[in-house]
């Protein structure tokens, strides 16, 4: 006996179930599982949100600090080199004396892999003509170096922020799908099957009573 369940077309998926006890039992188990999954996902969502909001707080402060430090350093550098011609500037810094390497470690936060940055400087950053540049350039570059450290922290934090946001978005979609589609759908279907079964029970009972009546009338 295959039936299309009325009242479940809230969701687009059309469900055809056979109204029997086995099916009902199966659906009840699925509902139980869906509810448990929903609770777990909800917990995960809360935990992600807590992490995310904490991170946002730090990022706000970090960004303004970094921006200020960087702007200051850039301005200092520009002032220090403004007397040189653009071609000269380029030539002076064309071959840097340092190698800037970024070592990346992957940390785990729940199911997410989040990169953590660490900077490695190799060599001497002041490998340019000291005769042709103002000593101010050295100081500006030192400032740039400390701004760079902040920038890396910011890059790490903002990457974590985006990854968390993405995971939050996905988790929220899943929670909503369970909460507003799957769980109500299963509930409706279970209710429908139980009613159908009760109805069968009743019709069977009346049939038996009728049969009994007929038998009694014959005797």
């Amino acid at each position: 006996m295959l039936l299309t369940i009325p009242g479940t077309n809230k969701s687009e998926m059309k469900k055809t179930v056979s109204a029997n006890r086995m099916e009902n039992l199966k659906l009840k188990r699925r509902l139980e599982l869906a509810k448990r999954g929903h609770k777990l996902l909800k917990d995960k969502q809360d935990e992600l949100m807590r992490n995310f909001l904490e991170l946002i707080d730090t990022i706000r402060g970090l960004r303004s600090r970094t921006e200020n430090a960087l702007i200051k350093a850039l301005r200092r550098f520009t002032k220090a080199t403004c007397e040189l011609s653009p071609a000269k500037q380029r030539a002076l810094f064309a071959v840097p004396g340092v190698q800037f390497r970024l070592s990346v470690e992957t940390r785990r936060l729940m199911n997410l892999r989040i990169p953590a940055f660490d900077a490695e400087l190799e060599g001497n950053p002041f490998a340019y003509s000291l005769r042709e540049t103002d000593p101010e350039v050295d100081f500006a570059l030192k400032e740039i170096a400390s701004a760079l450290e902040l920038l890396l922290k910011l890059a790490e934090a903002e990457k974590k922020m985006s990854l968390l946001a993405d995971e939050l978005d996905r988790t929220r979609r899943r929670v909503n799908a369970l909460e507003y589609t799957l769980i109500p759908d299963l509930g409706d279907t279970i209710k429908y099957i139980s009613q159908k079964l009760e109805e069968l029970e009743r019709s069977n009972l009346t049939r038996l009573m009728k049969v009994k009546e007929i038998i009694e009338a014959e005797h």
Binding site: F77, T81, Q89, Q99, L121, P125, L141, I144
Partner: peptide
């Protein structure tokens, strides 16, 4: 732009 890039380049970026 060049003014932003140069100091970074000097640091090996």
């Amino acid at each position: 732009d060049i003014a932003t890039c140069l100091p970074f380049r000097a640091m090996g970026v």
